[in-house]
């Protein structure tokens, strides 16, 4: 036995983050009655799912995945989701706010805030209530946005699913307090301590499959303000004056709903090039997400129940 000897083992920072995330995921399964993993099909979700599969190997995942679909995701995301979930054999639940979709909810006519509120936040709250989940894993990271920098790993939500940032439980060491009252729930963020760079490095190291939109390709795009918006035939009537779709070598740093997510000009066609590009990036990935713009929007949305 090596006890008393000098340390000869080193964990790389990615492996240290991985170990911490697996610990958190297992702790939730041990302490909660009915957990679910939110799955948005994006790169962070892909890492989160990979970590969960590692946590319980060789057993299958002990909880389902929940995709709160807005109906506005890129078609490549739906194709990837269905093929990948089938391949790895996970239980995928898809829920949509059908009422709002039937009423024709969209960001252009109703505004981004209302559309997100109905399709994402309300869609999520309804799905969590329907499934009677007491814990929901999410792939949010603290480096994404300044209100998220203050988020706990176990984030308490009241019976309305709302976050109270001024009244958060202290989290000490790696001991998480999972005790809740009837009706309350927690959102759990196992990759809180990962940065965008870590996500890309880990996807590269682990060969984690991701939606092809993350890789650069000549794509038909419309340039609107400082954003590159992917153009689909259905958008013909929504073009603004002077806008002309054209082919642009581009990729997505982050994926959301197609009307509200911009691409970036890029030549990065493989993981090595993506990592190199991420390392050189001077602007944050959330800049391409329209929902974050506005003085206080992420914190407000989180208080209402957004993940």
């Amino acid at each position: 036995m090596s006890e008393g000897n000098k340390s000869e083992h080193k964990l790389t920072q990615l492996k240290a983050l991985e170990a911490e995330s697996i610990h958190i995921i297992r702790e939730v399964v041990a302490e909660f009655r009915n957990p679910v993993m939110l799955y948005s099909v994006g790169k962070d979700s892909s890492v989160l799912l990979h970590l969960a599969r590692k946590a319980f190997y060789p057993a299958p995942l002990p909880f389902p995945l929940l995709h709160v679909d807005t109906g506005f995701k890129f078609k490549e995301m739906y194709e990837f989701r269905d093929a990948f979930c089938k391949e790895v054999g996970v239980n995928l639940i898809v829920r949509r706010n059908e009422d709002a979709i039937a009423k024709g909810m969209n960001p252009k006519d109703f505004g981004v805030a209302r559309c997100c509120g109905a399709l994402k936040t309300q869609g999520l709250l309804d799905a969590l209530e329907e499934g009677e989940y007491d814990a929901a894993f999410g792939g949010a990271r603290r480096d994404e946005e300044r209100s998220r920098a203050k988020e706990r790993v176990f984030s308490m939500r009241d019976e309305f699913g709302q976050w109270d940032p001024k009244n958060q439980r202290p989290e000490l060491w790696n001991i998480y307090n999972g005790r809740i009252h009837e009706g309350e729930s927690v959102r759990v963020f196992p990759i809180s301590n990962w940065t965008e760079m870590d996500i890309w490095l880990y996807i590269r190291e682990e060969n984690i499959p991701i939606v092809p939109l993350y890789f650069a390709k000549e794509r038909l795009m419309v340039e609107r303000k400082h954003l590159l918006i992917p153009y689909y035939e259905e958008m013909k009537d929504q073009l603004l004056e002077g806008e002309e779709p054209k082919m642009v070598m581009s990729r997505f740093r982050t994926l959301g709903c197609s009307p509200c997510t911009g691409a970036v000009r890029s030549d990065a066609t493989n993981m090595d090039e993506i990592v190199i590009e991420a390392a050189a990036a001077r602007r944050s990935e959330r800049e391409t997400r329209i929902i974050d713009h506005g003085s206080n929007s992420m914190e407000d949305k989180k208080k209402e129940g957004y993940f």
Binding site: T12, L14, A16, L17, M197, L201, E205, V275, I276, A279
Partner: peptide
């Protein structure tokens, strides 16, 4: 970032 640096980026430690 070169090929070599990619390797370094993966292997750095956490403090």
């Amino acid at each position: 970032m070169t090929e070599l640096n990619l390797k370094v980026a993966e292997e750095i430690e956490l403090l």
